[in-house]
Design a protein around this nucleic acid. Structure first.
Length: 644
RNA sequence: GCUGGCGUAGCUCAACGGUAGAGCAGCUGAUUUGUAAUCAGCAGGUUGUAGGUUCAAAUCCUAUCGCCAGCUCCA
């Protein structure tokens, strides 16, 4: 009589007694190592969960996203158990899963040494092998607090005290227990392939004012092969690291004599950069932007008026003071300068939109620990523009920017990106301008623009700039992490602060709206991204050296010089290898330098007045005349740029 | 900024208390070579910097600068 109906994953409905455990209904799955958890009406639970009402069940297999999450969470527990058994007195705090893995934060006086990490790994293997049952129990909040207090787990106590629930769940494996929502694998034996990947300090609750905890990162996979494959991918990604390739290919350097975070562009890197600059400036001009140039210093009052001094001061270099008390700062942003240009003259509504663009160099103070290669620097040149427009032009202008972004991404072959609509956090009045009507309106315009372009987007609360909402275009990097490349920000605030005006059709002075936008980010970050995106193999149109001319012996040097001069005169970036080395050696160097074409010249080519191109990678092209080769190069560039 | 790891020749690395070494790159010479490394010789260093311990320091200790992985922050 006290029975319930359970719909099984295969659609069958069974009638079982209330309180039956999931793994009792279909004993087969209990022994199937591939199933690590179940879902009751879509909610993940342990396989040992008792069913108390009609429901439908689904299995969570270890290689599904949910299953991996369970596995990694359980591995975090496994690690915490190992740590506490090896190092008594260490307190546990939190141990969530993250992309591809997990971490657990511990409170311990000293940090973990590499040797200790090895010991922890070994102990984890032992516990996994012992195949301890993982059991769940529920407990009143107050009891749990009492329990963890007795255990000396102050952080767990603090966590439970913040939980709203009256009943909390605990998980036990062997003599070890942790507060956790679950679900977990049925027993530690389900954990078969893991590796601890790093130690780091981390602040309790992510706040740098709190004490520092010791974090251990790890990764876990259903099989050893999957783990191996993951570690191999990490190695692959390392080879594409722009810092490594930048050094190998002679693109840029950072000198601790000049200063950290202040990149120095070497000739080859500067070549790529200037191609990028020319490319983006040309496109912007064709789309109605006017390029300007403004100085990198300004009176501090300019930034006081803009509000940056209040909101951005910790990222600004302190003012330089002179005898006459004039204070100058290195600019951290270009907008006030562009605003100044706008204010230089009267604007009719007929003039709008005014689109001012600049490759503006600016300086931001970054904490030393934040610096990283070209992607996080202290001096950077932004592909910046400010659109001053009528309120009714916002949507069209935003759409225009989005289309520009799409066009540029196509040219770089970027496909793996997504849009993020970054909104204010209405609760956070301190970090966002306090004007709900302004925000609501602005957020609406951006949504409409995204809809008009017809792209899907994710909303992110609290990610807006302090003066307005924005659309960020997020790219996935080599490791799958997303980073902002392009951004479109709506701003009603600076026009107000600077009392920007235009004369409307009715003769009244009115406020324009500002759109801040960046398409290819900063030259530094774009370069970092492209190096990794192409793994250093720049397409022909971007390659710092496009053609390397190599001869079989030095007998062909005269002709090779002529070929090289002809290509150079036609505008191609060419290097001639005049060294007395064997052909294979010179080919090898051209390949390692990732030059798109090596052009081979031997007696046959001199005789026939041709060149024998070899593409980067090894593909040989049948010998052809220099002018035919140039046609081929032109065609290839046109293809890359979507013009052929 | 914080936690941990690491700084040796231009590059990649060895030496881990007892006279700093290799490969590649560079230079010189020989070789005249057909699609990813021809051979030989030469040269190259106050071991990031500054102190300290020691008969003796690249090696141990302290400070400092920088790099790396995270935390925090972000274009």
């Amino acid at each position: 009589m006290d029975s319930i109906h359970v719909t099984l994953p295969d659609g069958k409905v069974v009638e079982v007694q209330r309180g039956t455990r999931i793994d009792e209904i279909t004993p087969a799955i209990a022994t199937n190592g591939n199933i690590v958890a179940a879902k009751i009406d879509g909610r993940p639970v342990d396989l040992s969960r008792r069913l108390d009402s009609d429901c439908s069940l689904a299995w969570v297999s270890i290689d599904s996203p949910d299953g991996l999450d369970v596995l990694r969470h359980s591995t975090a527990h496994l690690m915490a158990q190992a740590v506490q058994s090896l190092f008594p007195g260490t307190q546990v705090t939190i141990g969530p899963t993250i992309e591809d893995g997990f971490y657990y934060d511990f409170k311990r006086d000293r940090s973990f040494t590499p040797e200790e990490i090895e010991k922890i790994e070994a102990r984890m293997e032992e516990i996994a092998k012992a195949n301890l049952k993982v059991t769940r129990e529920e407990m009143l909040r107050s009891q749990a607090i009492e329990l963890f207090r007795r255990m000396g787990e102050d952080y767990k106590v603090a966590i439970i005290e913040d939980l709203p629930d009256e009943v909390v769940s605990l998980y036990r494996q062997g003599d070890w227990v942790d507060l956790c929502r679950g679900p977990h694998v049925p027993s530690t034996g389900a954990i078969k392939a893991f590796k601890l990947t790093g130690v780091a300090g981390a602040y309790w609750r992510g706040n740098e004012k709190n004490e520092m905890l010791q974090r251990i990162y790890g990764t876990a996979w259903p099989t050893r092969q999957a783990l191996k494959e993951h570690l191999r991918l990490l190695e692959e990604a390392k080879k594409r690291d722009h810092r490594k390739l930048g050094q190998e290919l002679g693109l840029f350097m950072i000198s601790d004599v000049v200063g950290p975070g202040l990149p120095i562009w070497l000739p080859k890197g500067a070549m790529v950069r200037s191609i990028l600059e020319r490319y983006i400036v040309d496109i912007e001009r064709s789309m109605g932007y006017q390029h300007v140039n403004t100085p990198q210093l300004a009176r501090v009052d300019l930034y006081k008026r803009s509000g940056h001094w209040d909101h951005f001061k910790e990222n600004m270099y302190p003012p330089m003071e002179f005898e006459n008390k004039e204070e100058l700062v290195l600019r951290p942003m270009n907008c006030p300068h562009h605003i100044t240009i706008y204010k230089h003259g009267l604007h009719s509504y007929r003039d709008l939109p005014v689109r001012l663009a600049e490759l503006g160099t600016m300086y931001r103070y970054e904490r030393s620990g934040a610096l990283s290669g070209l992607s996080r620097v202290r001096a950077m040149t932004l592909n910046d523009a400010h659109i001053f427009c009528l309120p009714e032009q916002i949507q069209a202008e935003t759409v225009g920017v989005l289309r520009l972004i799409q066009r540029v991404y196509r040219d770089f072959g970027l496909k793996d990106y997504w849009y993020r609509l970054s909104l204010r956090n209405p609760m956070d009045k301190a970090n966002f301008v306090d004007n709900d009507a302004m925000w609501d309106g602005a957020e609406g315009y951006l949504r409409q623009a995204l809809d008009e372009v017809g792209v899907s987007f994710k909303e992110a609360v609290g990610e807006a700039a302090y003066y307005g909402p924005k659309i960020d275009v997020q790219l996935n990097d080599v490791l799958g992490h997303s980073e902002t490349l392009s951004t479109v920000q709506l701003d009603f605030y600076l026009p107000e602060r600077f009392e920007l005006e235009y004369v409307d059709r009715d003769g009244q002075y009115k406020r324009p709206v500002m759109i801040h936008r960046g398409v290819i980010s900063t030259m530094e970050r774009m370069m970092a991204f492209l190096i990794e995106h192409y793994a250093g193999n720049f397409p022909l149109w971007l390659a710092p050296v496009q053609v390397k001319v190599v001869t079989v012996t030095d007998q062909q040097l005269d002709y090779a010089r002529k070929v090289s001069a002809e290509l150079t005169a036609a505008g191609w970036r060419v290097e001639l290898d005049e060294r007395n080395e064997k052909l294979g050696y010179k080919i090898r160097e051209a390949q390692l330098a990732k030059i798109p074409y090596a052009v081979v010249i031997g007696d046959k080519e001199v005789e026939a007045q041709t060149v024998a191109p070899r593409r980067r990678g090894g593909e040989n092209v049948a010998p052809l005349s220099v002018s035919d080769f140039i046609q081929r190069l032109k065609f290839e560039v046109a293809q890359e740029r979507g013009e052929a």
